[in-house]
């Protein structure tokens, strides 16, 4: 009887080890379910794995007739819940202009009186965009390839980007006309805008959401001085990108 109990205990331990190793092996080279909860977002869902999910979703949707659709998503549910999170944000008081998106302030360019503040989003950034300041939404446009083929061809930061679809929200503000351009590249056209033309919006209010996209460009008059450094991380609705002093 004792022998049997010992054997049972030993078999249970070996079984647990086998299950752990099996999970490890099946997830490899990505982290297994046992260590996943201990890892930060970047290690928990490595970039290569997220790219594979995106490609698989795109292929599946292409088989169904529309590669840009969001019908089939092969992202693991825990990643998708993290990716679509929508935390509250509190804009700082005062007249400043805040960042429209979470991410890395990657490029800054000026051309024809307009300055372009380019925020690059990673897979692990919040993908909900916010209005940089109070204003009136005067236009919401869909744009196809024209930005890279036409008006944007001289913008070096977009020269090598595939931009299947963009949404451009034009905002009339006390400092002039602002445009917030949502761009997707990897898994395409998942652009939502939460407001309609003619809406009066507040600084920090939710503007839209990019599902599996990559870039947000804030276009504003070049006379407005910037208060952030190139390469710094910005938080939508909270990081002040300019004190907003009128020229």
């Amino acid at each position: 009887m004792k022998r049997r109990r010992v054997l049972l205990a030993q078999l249970s331990l070996l079984g647990l080890c086998a299950a752990a190793l099996l999970q490890f092996g099946m997830s490899f080279p990505y982290p297994g379910p046992l260590i996943r909860p201990l890892l930060g977002p970047r290690e928990r869902w490595p970039e290569q794995q997220v790219r594979e999910w995106a490609v698989r979703s795109r292929e599946e949707n292409a088989r169904r007739g529309n590669p840009e659709s969001t019908d089939a998503l092969h992202f693991r549910s825990d990643f998708w819940a993290y990716f679509t999170r929508d935390p509250e944000r509190t804009p700082p008081p005062g007249p400043g202009i805040v960042a429209p998106a979470d991410g890395l302030f990657r490029f800054h360019d000026k051309s024809d009186g307009v300055q372009f503040v380019v925020v690059a989003l990673s897979f692990w950034d919040v993908h909900v965009q916010r209005f940089p300041c109070d204003g009136l939404v005067t236009k919401i446009e869909d744009q196809g390839d024209s930005f890279t083929d036409g008006e944007g061809e001289n913008l070096i930061y977009l020269a090598e980007k595939v931009c299947p679809v963009q949404k451009v929200v034009t905002l009339q503000t006390e400092w002039g006309e602002f445009k917030i351009r949502l761009i997707t590249s990897i898994s395409a056209t998942r652009l939502k805008v939460f407001v309609a033309e003619g809406a009066r919006v507040k600084k920090g209010q939710r503007l839209g959401q990019i599902l599996a996209g990559s870039t947000v460009v804030l276009e504003m008059p070049s006379s407005i001085p910037l208060s952030i450094e190139l390469g710094s991380r910005v938080v939508a609705g909270e990081t002040v990108v300019s004190g907003g002093k009128s020229p």
Binding site: C17, A20, L21, F24, P31, G32, L34, I35, L38, L39, G40, E43
Partner: peptide, 15 residues
Amino acid sequence: LGTLFILVFDYYWRT
């Protein structure tokens, strides 16, 4: 011990 080593090592090199 071998299983624990693999899991701990996996965590270590990822972090």
